[in-house]
Amino acid sequence: NRMYLVCPMNTSPYVDPQKSGHSIWEDFSMSFTPAVREVVEFAKRIPGFQDLSQHDQVSLLKAGTFEVLVVRFVSLFDVKERTVTFLSGKKYSVEALRSMGAGDLLNSMFDFSEKLLALNLSEEEMSLFTAVVLVSADRSGIENVNSVEALQETLIRALRSLVTKNHPNEATIFTKLLLKLPDLRSLNNMHSEQLLAFKVHP
């Protein structure tokens, strides 16, 4: 009998209690599908991504889409105002979302957003970092690990070169960025747990 969906990939956290679980799920899917399609379009533009096998392209996207969305939508989490902006553009306070059942994942999303935004990355740096997030050879189900690893290394080298060029006096930025990768994995795991709970008990 869950009444709220606190994911900002919805237009609103409020769920119509008259709707069936299936219908709620359909609405949620309609809501986040355009964002997922944008991730796929982004992936296609990563040089070398489309040279990977179809299987590995799908595996990387399946495993990494949530993490890419977290990076792309980092600005939805307003650390100063303590609000989250949903797809409709409406903002909800942390307290309101907490009262709707949001827990540790929400806190962790704010922490991540705050730290990533503090690095003051350019659009180009964010884009390259996002590519690094997506192309990770240690995702489950990768068939041709060597190909993905080679592309991953190329992207990491390009990111290091760009960050070093843009921030010559801030030697730790590249390291801090790489340390965001395990943070994203952790968020991904927390999110997956919530999804499983939702699907089993919609």
């Binding site: 296609k44 299987h55 089993v200």
Partner: peptide, 27 residues
């Protein structure tokens, strides 16, 4: 429901979005 990506129908969305580029590609 052991696979969250399948759970969300994510794989289907991803495959459809990739399809335009994949029609002529071997596995």
């Amino acid at each position: 429901f052991s696979d969250p990506a399948s759970n969300l129908g994510l794989e289907d969305i991803i495959r459809k979005a990739l399809m335009g580029n994949m029609e002529d590609r071997p596995e």
